[in-house]
């Protein structure tokens, strides 16, 4: 007897968003990346196909970071001293797009400057043809000071500027509008605030096909279940037709997992924790796959091996299983 699978009928869908512009669209990227467009909960193949695969970004820095795990510094090696070279290495490692996160200070401890930020962004664009996201260091004033000149310098490239928060979004939205870029908005694991921020960004004038949302999540063992249900609720609301929750979701898995004790600490841990590098990669990989199941459209990672493993998992998830 044939099994009749019950299907949900949804009235809404996730907004489709294109990141990066090729020469044909006035940029210099070798290919653009399209995310979103889903019309079902994640990978419910019997209801509808997943129109765009979740994409994987690798995070690189403008300066060799002094707060990153030595595991990461070792695997990226010399490239960490040169954002252009790091971008090239990340592209070769298989990333779909890049996140350049700008530092608060240079390695000598001097405040970062707009000139240095622009130089780093330009080097990344030259080092790799991948679409680009650029985040400020996370302090409102410094973010605006660094990102506005970067946005101007990258005009036409359709980069993603981040991160908009409820107290600081107008400047980023304005410069994104002026330069043909996108923004990502972040609320602290709260569906109400995520939605509110999207309303504010839209009211400030940016069309919704240029907005991503970062719902904020925790790493495995550090609140991932809470992040999961926030993402699930946002996706359900999007499918029910709430336009202000339909932005594709971007999650910064690398940032979250590499600060956990399990990833950070190699010495003086119980022997049963096993090999440090394997553990750290697994932490990043499992967190990423879990959030992809929750509906993440963009996953930002740090370790190239994690990227390979998450990519393999997506390959499995994206094709409908044979039902017998």
């Amino acid at each position: 007897m044939a099994l009749e699978l019950p299907k949900d009928k949804w009235s809404g869908s996730v907004q489709e968003v294109v990141i990066g512009a090729t020469a044909a669209d006035g940029g210099t990227r070798t290919a653009a990346v399209t995310v979103g467009g889903e019309t079902t909960m994640p990978f419910v193949h019997f209801e509808a196909e997943t129109p765009n695969r979740p994409v994987l970004a690798l995070e690189i820095k403008d300066f060799r970071p002094n707060d990153w795990s030595t595991l990461l510094l070792d695997v990226w090696g010399e490239a960490t001293n040169d954002p252009g070279a790091w971008a090239k290495a990340a592209e070769e490692a298989g990333a779909d797009l890049l996140l350049l996160s700008l530092s608060l200070t240079d390695p000598e401890g001097n405040p970062n400057t707009p000139e240095a930020a622009v130089k780093a962004a330009k080097a990344v664009l030259e080092g790799s043809g991948l679409p680009l996201m650029v985040y400020g260091p996370g302090q409102a004033e410094v973010d605006n000071e660094l990102l506005v000149p970067v946005a101007n310098a990258c005009q036409g490239e359709r980069i993603v500027l981040g991160i908009c928060e409820d107290k600081n979004y107008r400047t980023l939205v304005a410069t994104a509008m002026a330069n043909g870029h996108l923004v990502v908005g972040r609320a602290p694991m709260d569906v109400n605030l995520s939605k509110q921020l999207n309303i504010l960004i839209k009211d400030a004038g940016l069309p919704l096909d240029r907005v991503l949302m970062d719902p904020t999540t925790g790493a495995l063992g550090y609140g991932i279940e809470y992040g999961f249900s926030v993402m699930e609720r946002l996706r359900l609301a999007a499918l029910r037709g709430d336009a202000m929750t339909q932005s594709p979701m971007s999650v910064n898995v690398g940032f979250e997992t590499w600060k956990t004790k399990e990833s950070k600490v190699g010495d003086d841990v119980p022997e049963t924790w096993g090999d440090w590098e394997e553990r750290a990669i697994s932490w990043e990989t499992i967190t990423a796959i879990t959030l992809i199941e929750a509906g993440a459209d963009i996953v930002i990672l740090r370790h190239p091996e994690s990227l390979k493993r998450v990519r393999a998992a997506i390959d499995n998830l994206i094709t409908a299983p044979e039902l017998s």
Binding site: K195, I199, L200
Partner: peptide
């Protein structure tokens, strides 16, 4: 609980 609350829900 059919539409997610936001402070600006009336302006949506």
């Amino acid at each position: 609980n059919q539409v997610i609350y936001a402070d600006s829900y009336l302006e949506q």
